[in-house]
């Protein structure tokens, strides 16, 4: 029974990692851009929610609704005025720029909020749990997983069922030919990063309500997210969810054996999947 419990907790943790990863996966799938500041943007989102909670007295679950449009605008502008300029055949410039952005964000947050660790208040929700048979499931982890699945369902709907989604896929296939259809690739990329920032804000909500955070925790979130994206197969959103769950499971199982093995087990699972499936579990047919 204890193993069933461990597995359930692992899957739930995977929901959090999938949320960290979904925005990264979306942006990579559309424009082949690896945003090294992704983790720090999640932390920025958490501080923005914290600010709204402190200044306006909002619940974090309401504050996220205010923060999300602001983060969309930030992502849109970031892509439109900075990242689009370095996108091209060479993958190095965007890596350098987003690496720089990561450092700038960490230092700006340190300057603005100090290194003290923070937590978003949940009025008891963080410790609430429900009984499922013999297993105790935390309400917040359960909400995280449900949110992750919802986010991916919605993203897939946008991607495969809407005019915007067609434009995303066409631009990703061939930006020059897309422009012959009247699509402005620069705008499409900006909207994609804006949407990714909405997901980042949702991820920030759960990052901040489930655990303490400080300006330095971004890069570790980036690594988990990155591993989830790669395990799932670049560009596949359901793959990203599965990738997150695999990392979450591996960490929880590792920790059950020896608490010191938690982080390491996740990384080992990542390497094992890559050994068997170098292109991830659901690689895109066309690349």
């Amino acid at each position: 029974m204890i193993w069933v419990n461990t597995i359930v907790q692992g899957i739930l943790l995977g929901g959090l990692y999938a949320l960290f990863a979904a925005g990264l996966s979306l942006v990579f799938g559309i424009m082949r851009l690896v945003n090294l500041a992704h983790g720090d943007l999640i932390v920025l989102g958490a501080y923005l929610i914290l600010l709204l909670v402190t200044l306006l007295g909002l619940s974090p679950f309401v504050a996220v609704l205010v923060a999300a449009p602001a983060m969309f605008a930030l992502g849109w502008a970031l892509q439109r005025y900075m990242l689009n300029r370095v996108l091209g055949d060479d993958i190095l410039p965007p890596l350098l720029v987003t690496f720089g952005l990561s450092i700038v964000l960490q230092n700006a947050l340190l300057e603005g909020f100090s290194a003290d660790s923070q937590r978003l208040p949940t009025a008891g929700l963080a410790s609430a749990s429900i009984e499922l048979g013999a297993i105790n499931v935390g309400v917040l982890p359960l909400m995280t997983l449900v949110t992750a699945v919802l986010v991916i369902v919605v993203l897939n709907q946008i991607f495969y069922r809407t005019r915007l989604g067609r434009a995303f896929r066409a631009t990703s296939d061939d930006a020059v030919t897309a422009s012959l259809m009247g699509i402005k690739p620069a705008n499409i990329f900006a909207v994609a990063t804006g949407i990714a920032m909405i997901i980042v804000t949702i991820a920030a909500l759960y990052l901040g309500t489930r655990a303490n955070f400080d300006p330095s925790v971004g890069p570790a979130r980036l690594i988990y997210a990155f591993e989830a994206v790669i395990i799932g197969g670049l560009g596949s959103l359901w793959g990203t969810l599965l990738g997150g769950i695999i990392i979450g499971l591996a960490q929880t199982l590792g920790a059950a054996i020896n608490p010191e093995w938690q982080i390491l087990s996740g990384h080992i699972a990542f390497l094992l999947v890559l050994l068997v499936r170098p292109r991830g579990l659901f690689p895109r047919a066309v690349d």
Binding site: R166, R169, A170, S172, D173, D174, T177, A178, A285, V286
Partner: peptide, 8 residues
């Protein structure tokens, strides 16, 4: 070369 979008 027609340039259809393979993902569509």
């Amino acid at each position: 070369g027609r340039k259809l979008f393979p993902s569509l």
